[in-house]
């Protein structure tokens, strides 16, 4: 667990970066999606305490739960990530419509 989880995060980040470096604007969007997954997983992992119960309180005290704070943060992050994804997609569409290209390297220096 401790060894493999960082590898998962590394793969998510590395794969996302690789896609972002491509020219196709759609790949940029996909890469960003992968990286946001990676960031979320990273945050959640930091709340991991080895083994823990879901932070929903029962009758017996406040011990033995996983950290609820990263979960709350990530919940926000997921939603924001969705907003960003949607925004990016529409931006890509708009760029293609106005500039007639989806190649990021061709967008340079153009004025609409």
């Amino acid at each position: 667990m401790k060894l493999l989880l960082p590898v998962v995060i590394g793969v998510l980040f590395g794969g996302g970066t690789y896609l972002m470096l491509k020219k196709n604007i759609l790949k940029l969007v996909l890469g960003l999606g992968l990286i946001s997954h990676g960031a979320n997983v990273l945050l959640i992992s930091s709340g991991w305490i080895g083994a823990g119960a879901v932070p929903i309180l029962g009758q017996d005290g406040t011990e033995g739960f996983v950290d609820p704070v990263p979960q709350a943060l990530v919940l926000t992050a997921i939603v924001i990530g969705f907003a960003a994804l949607a925004f990016l997609l529409v931006l890509a569409i708009r760029v293609y419509r106005d500039l007639k290209t989806a190649d990021i390297s061709e967008i340079r220096g153009q004025r609409g």
Binding site: P6, I9, G10, V11, F13, G14, G15, T17, G38, L42
Partner: peptide, 11 residues
Amino acid sequence: LVGIVMTFYML
């Protein structure tokens, strides 16, 4: 680079 740094950082 990104993958490896993130991995080690996480570790």
